[in-house]
């Protein structure tokens, strides 16, 4: 198991090199100049030229790539062009907000999604199943910014129950968690339902029933665990996705997370900051998938890793 873990983590290295390299090349190819972007209307060609030189932006790209990656190996993720802040620090400071938002959104998503899926699956085509389908459809199709504004209008302003924007306590997370969690909940609910329905029709469930086990025991002990395999895969992807930043939710609710940092980095062509965000996202995806793979073994005893 330990060897497996180690091997999987080592596999992440070529993934990181590959993605950073691709990001780097993409940034080379697309038009845009970070200094011109920073100066906006104050563009002064002499200043742009000088600062580009001072920041070594005119060096050949392989040289810049190698220099950057050498820095990364030493734990130095460089300095943001625009804010001149340390990239590692910027991302590390933004991460807690994203972690809190992710955790609370997933609490909503899974806390609602899995039970809803189970209820729908145990009573297929009943009113509660249809209600769940409608809820799922709404959850997936309502845009986050619209739902966010609606919540702000109702709960933030009209009723005044919750703060509209900011990040200073648990009460600030309630609206964003629900808004962000809603679409993930819908996906999880649909997936749980279909997967559970499939398992419920299989032979061993019939056997379990034939033994005279109660419905609840059949469901929880026998059916649910097996049916959760595909759900866990999606859950892992959701974790990684949300941890890489939910930029719209972060913007609407003024949460200082990594999503806003990395989107700004793209807009500004803030290369060190963008590379830092990419590396972070890659590590999160790799770790997320790893956790999913390990939990497979817990869910399905036939799966083993050597």
């Amino acid at each position: 198991m330990l060897r497996y873990l180690l091997r999987r983590l080592l596999q992440a290295i070529p993934v990181i090199i590959g993605t950073t390299f691709l990001t780097f090349i993409l940034l080379e190819v697309v038009p845009g100049d970070p200094i011109a972007m920073m100066m906006k209307e104050h563009i002064d060609p002499d200043v742009v030229e000088r600062v580009r030189k001072e920041m070594h932006l005119d060096d050949p790209w392989p040289q810049r790539y190698v220099r950057y990656m050498a820095g990364v190996l030493r734990g130095d993720f460089g300095e943001s062009y625009k804010t001149r802040r340390d990239v590692g620090e910027l991302l590390a400071n933004a991460f807690p907000a994203t972690l809190a938002l992710t955790a609370s959104a997933l609490l909503v998503a899974w806390g609602i999604g899995i039970p809803a899926g189970i209820i729908a699956a145990t009573r297929p085509y009943s009113p509660s199943d249809h209600a769940m389908t409608v809820f799922a459809l709404l959850g997936v199709s309502v845009p986050v910014f619209w739902l966010g504004l609606l919540f702000q209008l109702i709960f933030g302003w009209k009723l005044g129950w919750l703060p509209i924007s900011g990040f200073k306590g648990v009460q600030y997370l309630i609206m964003p968690a629900i808004v962000l969690g809603a679409s993930s909940a819908a996906v999880i609910a649909r997936l749980t339902r279909s997967s559970l329905l499939e398992v419920m029709g299989s032979d061993y469930i019939r056997t379990a029933r034939a033994k005279g086990l109660r419905n609840l025991i059949v469901l929880v002990r026998h059916a649910l665990k097996n049916s959760l395999l595909p759900v866990v895969t999606v859950m892992a992807i959701q974790v990684a996705e949300l941890l890489s930043g939910a930029v719209i939710t972060e913007s609407v609710f003024g949460i200082p997370g990594v999503g806003r940092v990395s989107v700004k980095a793209i807009q500004q062509r803030d290369f060190p900051l963008l590379m830092g965000s990419v590396i972070m996202a890659v590590v999160l995806v790799v770790v997320g998938n790893l956790i999913a793979d390990i939990s497979y073994a817990y869910l399905d005893p036939r799966i083993r890793y050597e």
């Binding site: 400071n93 955790a103 200082p256």
Partner: peptide, 22 residues
């Protein structure tokens, strides 16, 4: 597993909130 996930979520909430990043 579910319990662990719930604990992780709560820890993340509790752990991150008071310390303002920055």
């Amino acid at each position: 597993l579910m319990a662990i996930l719930a604990i992780v979520a709560l820890l993340a909430l509790g752990g991150c909130m008071p310390a303002a990043p920055g």
